[in-house]
């Protein structure tokens, strides 16, 4: 990543416009791009499963291997 130390001097900052600062922050502040899937989970009971006592005790739960 390029070194932006010069543009981080307080004097330079105070003389900058809000727009200039926003552009600078967008450039040097952005976290690394490293996408990661985050699938939505099922939280609400299916209509047929509402009274399933077995499910209440964890039967049928997704169990990933790790």
């Amino acid at each position: 990543m390029s070194n932006s130390a010069d543009s981080l001097q307080t004097g330079a900052l105070e003389a900058s416009s809000v727009e200039d600062i926003a552009v600078l922050v967008d450039r040097i502040g952005a976290p690394p791009a490293a996408p990661c899937a985050m699938p939505k989970q099922q939280l609400e009971p299916a209509a047929t499963g509402l009274f399933s006592m077995l499910r209440l005790f964890g039967v049928g739960a997704p169990r990933p291997e790790h």
Partner: peptide, 24 residues
């Protein structure tokens, strides 16, 4: 939000933290 950006830059400068501290 404008103040956040200003103080973020100050934070980076004081901690020499470009590439370690991010803001979005």
């Amino acid at each position: 939000a404008a103040r956040e950006r200003f103080w973020f830059l100050r934070l980076l400068r004081e901690r020499d933290a470009e590439g370690r501290i991010f803001y979005r």
